[in-house]
Design a protein around this nucleic acid. Sequence first.
RNA 1: GCGGGCGUGGCGGAACGGCAGACGCAGCGGCCUUAAAAGCCGCAGGUUCGCAAGGACCGUGAGGGUUCGAGUCCCUCCGCCCGCACCA
Length: 871
Amino acid sequence: MAEKQTYDPATIEPKWQQFWAEHKVFAAKNPGEPGFDARKPKFYALDMFPYPSAAGLHVGHPEGYTATDIVSRFKRAKGFNVLHPMGWDAFGLPAEQYAIQTNTHPAITTERNIGTFRRQLQRLGFSYDWDREFATSDPAYFRWTQWIFKKLHERGLAYESNAPVWWCEELGTVLSNDEVVGGRSERGNHPCERRPLRQWVLKITDYAERLLTELDPLDWSESLKTMQREWIGRSEGAEIDFDVEGHAGTKIRVFTTRPDTLFGASFMVLSPEHPLVAKITTPACRAAIDDYVRMAAGKSELERTELAKDKTGVFTGAYALNPLFGEGDPRQRIPVWIADYVIVSYGTGAIMAVPAGDERDFEFATRFGLPVPGIFAPETGDAEHDAAVAAGRKCVAGEVPYAAHCRTADGLALAGKSKVAAVTAVIDWLRARGRGEAKTTFKMRDWLFSRQRYWGEPFPVLHTEDGVELMADEALPVTLPQMADFKPGGQPESPLIRAREWVATKDSKGRPAQREINTMPGAAGSSWYFLRFCDPKNEREFCSKAASDYWLPVDLYVGGTEHAVGHLLYSRFWTKVLHDLGLVRVNEPFFKLYNQGMIQSFAWQDGRGAIVMPTDVREDGDAGFHKDTGEALTKIITKMSKRYGNVVNPDDVVGEYGADTLRLYEMYMGPLADSKPWNPKDVPGVHRFLGRVWRLCVPEDPAAGAQHTWLRQDRAGDPALEKLLQRCIHKVEGDVERLAFNTAIAAMMIFVNEATGRMDGLSRDQLRRFVQVLAPFAPHLAEELWQRLGGQGLLAYANWPLVDPQALVDDEVEIAVQVLGKVRGRAVVPTGAGNDVLLAAARAAVAAQLEGKTIVKEIVVPGKLVNFVVK
RNA sequence: GCGGGCGUGGCGGAACGGCAGACGCAGCGGCCUUAAAAGCCGCAGGUUCGCAAGGACCGUGAGGGUUCGAGUCCCUCCGCCCGCACCA
């Protein structure tokens, strides 16, 4: 007997992948190109492009990619021009570290890794337009990254700075704020320290206000918007100048959000790094101050910000003068301290301390025995509390009535004013006297834009006799020199310094000049790649205005939360700058952003909490035992990691079940946004489903042909199946729009289960339509069946089947009948029946429960239920 | 500490304020098979009454509230996850 015709992804998947690639089935046409259809709306579906690591693709990658692929295929079927590209974020530290480890040039390892990633992605049948592929390390691409840097420089948004930056000895480079977490590098968890180094910095703070307000209308999750808002960290207040006693002309400027509490400023705190510390410290205090400053500098950021630690600080010996009070007022003269709870880089690096109104200042005052002048007169009714606050024994924040003595001789008086009014009053008073002004500050710092590494974009910058010179557009791209040894030198200097011939060059006037030896950070190339995808081959421009006008903004951007404040902020910043230059129409690049959850995995833990590798575990159902000791183990859910031995390789899954099963399983696991564990036992379930779909079309016996006999011609299908199919199409449509892929798949399973029960009632037309619905999820199987069913042309180009709204309505509905809110019966009534019909049917259904009771109220929800309230 | 999210069967998860547990996994029974695998058909939250058909009660982390009706809305608490964390 001949082989059975079973569902065999290993033959159909490569077949269709090859066909799609050869015929460029998913190539997107730009306006003006032959074949472009201007009548169609556009849809730009984008994945956060991957960093091609040596480890290859991880099952986490295809989760988001499958989601955007489903939407892309769906939108094509719905008549959209779809842009769905893929490329590589290829410059950066990990590539370079891997290159160093394997002693291979990063260009080579990167190319090899990209090859692996591309092959793995193509095995999953994603409908990318591969003609638009590029890597950020391609000279044809980074030429324009350099060009954009020039534009930023022209606008005054790029500058050199010598301010302290995060230096990571282990990585041999500086890192930006979002790359350092708690004083350690995000990548590798190495210790970092602050040190001053000459660096290129981008003035993202100029855009802080816009980055904040223009976030509002975006279709992003609230939690992500909150993260960005907090990172930007806007706060409104005032800057106030304090004179220093005995130092005429020297002023200490502070930033405060509570200028209304100036009456209670009883000391002042400078950060240890504040430039005036050395100047104002008195000889008697100098030794202690020097010690403290040295100690603060030696502390890691982690130690300095450690939670719940006691505050430390030292008196400078100097006194500042509160601008509110005149000579002779005992409140005028306040001591100046230094303490490391004040951060040099925020605000002015100095604060006025108001212990009565600020928890931190109160703690400091208490610890060092400084006075706490009361400035509030609360009336909470709690006499003890009110008295304590008035006397300065307790600290309060927020809206509290001011004490009567909060007044100046010349008419400023806060008593009776609201907080907002008091803030305004104090600012007005200060401004009139040139002692302060309203001020808004941001936590966000400028973007540290240079790295001391080899594998990144060189700057289009020369250092000449006259200073910095930007290179001409024609000289771009500035490519990296070939170097045999690109390791960091242990110095805070780029390895490029050793490429002497490359560094030494001539400026535009023919004089000797040196190239900039720092390179750009990894986030440079990824800050505009979504633009380049619109016009990836353009040699004259970074992206034609026509192309970006058409495709942007990105309609759906899917990726992980880890880029919440880095990449997403930088991309928004660059887009706004390019917009301001008139080069891009949109002001925001990503209209809808969706964060997929993490795919986790099971791991085993013993009684001490130690991880037990799966190879040492004997599984028995859901329980697990140590193979050697027999100890019962606990199953935990955690991220996939080599340490736990629980990494799932997509290649293995594709090898065993096929790409369609992998895609379908990842979408079926649960909501896209949730983190959820990979359960190998669940995978066969979706594979079985695909096998059933296959059998709906293809007979087991090859002698019976490529499709069941009843599918060889058109004839009417089973009306009950028709109704189910209509429902299924409708449900999938709605679910795909809201990215609820798990429930869409459930709906398809329901249909297939029914259809399997009466297979020969299924018509060719019905099965074709079902296959169309399946196509975005399992495109290979769908395309194969479409062909066997004699579908017109390619399924990839077919229009989404229409739903007949009539078909969604049943003639009859079953309603629930409740008595006192509990379901006691059911009744079948005609759809759209009036309340009286419903009530009559309902009464009959629960007659027994109503017996001997009085109906107090009848609640009717048409088409759903009837509830009797009885007594 | 502050902000946000989440707690539903043995497991992953469904459920516009209206029949909790769709769909899948694991489980059980049956058909097919010499046997198994595969496949197909069916059962299935818990407790309990009943020979059965079919009932009853309890059930969405805990407690309270709003409502004719709460997994869903409100308050308090517990637990888990994420983000921020001396930002003046």
